[in-house]
Each structure stands twice: as C-alpha cells, then as structure tokens.
Design a protein around this nucleic acid. Structure first.
Lengths: 138, 138
DNA sequence: TGTAATTGCTCTAGTCACTAGAGCTTCAAG
DNA sequence: CTTGAAGCTCTAGTGACTAGAGCAATTACA
C-alpha cells in the first residue's frame, strides 16, 4: 500500500495533481486508511505512471481518458488508440512548424538591432511594423 | 475614429480580446461615443497591431507590457528590449527541441502498432511501460 | 421616419491543467 | 509521548482568452 506521497515520488506526479486527477475521474478514488488518508495499490501506481507518461507526450487529459477506457477493453480493435496517437503526432508537427517560423522571425529581429537607444531599436520597430517581417507568421 | 469592430477587423484581434486587453491595461481606455461605445484613434489602432504582432511571435502579455513601456521612452538604451526578444528566442528554441523529442517518440509509438486489438496495441503498451521508450522525454 | 439587423455594452462564468494557500488532522520516527 | 512531516478539504488563482445572458446603441434600408 502506498501513500499519496509514495505515489508522487514514484511517478513524478505532484501530490495536488494526483488529487486533481482523482477529482477529474482520471484515477479512481482509492481506499482510505482509518484516519481517512489515501492508500494506493500497485495497479493504481501503474495507472498513474501511464497518465504521467502520456501527459509528458503532450496528450490532453481527454485523450488519456479515452486511452484508459480503451486499455480496459483489450479485445477491441485498436484503431482508435492509433488514431489518437497519430492526431497527437500531427499536432506536435504543426506546433514545431509554427515555432520554427517564429524562430526565424525572432532571429531576424533580435540580431538586426544595432541601435543604441529604443528610438532606433530594431526589436521595437519590427514589432511596430509587420511589413518588416520576412514572411507571414502567426 | 474606429469602432471596436473596425479595430478588430483591421488588426485581427477579436472584439472581446480587445476589451480584455483594456481591462489588463495593455491598451488605454479609449474615448466613448455619446451612447457609451468605444471610439479609437489611429494611434490606438497601431498599438493594438503592435500587440497582435508580438502575441503572434509568442511574447507573453507581461513582455509586451514592458516593450510598450520601453517604446514610450525612445531615448533610453534598447538593451532591455533586446533582452526580452532574446529570451523569447531561447524559449522558442527550447520548445522546439522538446517537441522534436516528442515527435520522435510518437513516431515510434504510432508506427510500430501492427496489433489488431487493444490487447497487443503498441500505443497502449508504450504508454504503459516507459521502459519501451528509446530515450528520455518530458 | 420607422424598423430591423447588426454591433456594442457590462457582467459573470468557463476553459485547461494545474498550483497555492489556509486551517486543520493523522502518521511515523525517535 | 512528543514533534514535525505529511496528509486532509476547501477555496481561489494562473494565463490568455472565450462564451453567454440580457440589455442599449448604431446603421442600413424602405
């Protein structure tokens, strides 16, 4: 039996976050000690590790809920799980592409400033005038 | 004089967001018509375009507040503006690096699944068992 | 000038995924 | 048996908006 602090140390999920997940129904409410403290089994530890892992990979809580639901039905076809993972991959790739555009623009902005005062600072001018941008972003 | 809707169309910032920026003190409260509707000048249009542009580039509202403050003092040295832009660039690069690690992991997870049912779905197994990961992420 | 559609107003509450704090109780070590 | 860490519940705050209710003002057209 693990206390909530044990669980936290073993999974890297903070204590208040574990309680939050319980409230959200991502993890089931565990047994309690006589003094009303949460006592977790190994199964619950594993579920929390699963959640932690999926969150690290950027899955939304709703996605995780669906994945947990699926994992409870091992006889079903796994197309849905695949789909969730692929959508997550697509969304990660989109974010990377977007951030790369920002990186380019910020490089231009931050490197070009050779002014001494705010009056001729390229950072400020570039932000004031979208026309100075090399190409579209955002 | 522009209505809030004009401003929204010209800058691409949604109407409730403009009001929110006013509440946050990013844009000053503008004049009002006799019927209490907001009426903006060209200067306010330009400030909002500045804000929009900086938000597109991922600057936090607090950064933008600082940049606006700086742009009101054109005689000051621009080192601070440079610093804000460079920190933003660093943060964007960190996010890109992190997302690339996730991309790699998700590619492995999503492509390896050749199981037919959830029971042997690689997506689910990979999430259940962090040891299956190629390297650390998150 | 009348009227209807659009746009505007304020205010409150919701989003997401937590995080922080108050004020209390229980547990484990020495 | 005491002390200090860890636990409990509850409420509220974060960032950057977004949605909706219930009104008032403006604008376009007949």
């Amino acid at each position: 039996m693990f206390s909530i602090g044990d669980l936290s140390r073993r999974t890297g999920v903070k204590v208040p976050t574990i309680r939050y997940y319980e409230q959200m129904g991502l993890v089931a409410a565990p047994e309690r000690s006589e003094g009303n403290q949460r006592r977790y089994s190994r199964q619950e530890l594993e579920r929390l590790a699963f959640i932690r892992h999926a969150r690290d990979l950027g899955f939304a809580v709703e996605d995780i809920r669906a994945l947990i639901e699926l994992s409870g039905h091992p006889e079903q076809p796994c197309g849905h799980a695949d789909k969730i993972a692929e959508e997550q991959l697509i969304s990660v790739r989109e974010k990377i592409a977007q951030l790369k555009r920002l990186e380019t623009e910020l490089e231009r902005i931050a490197s070009c400033c050779d002014g001494k005062t705010v009056g001729d600072c390229y950072v400020i001018r570039a932000l004031s005038d979208h026309a100075l941008c090399a190409d579209e972003h955002g």
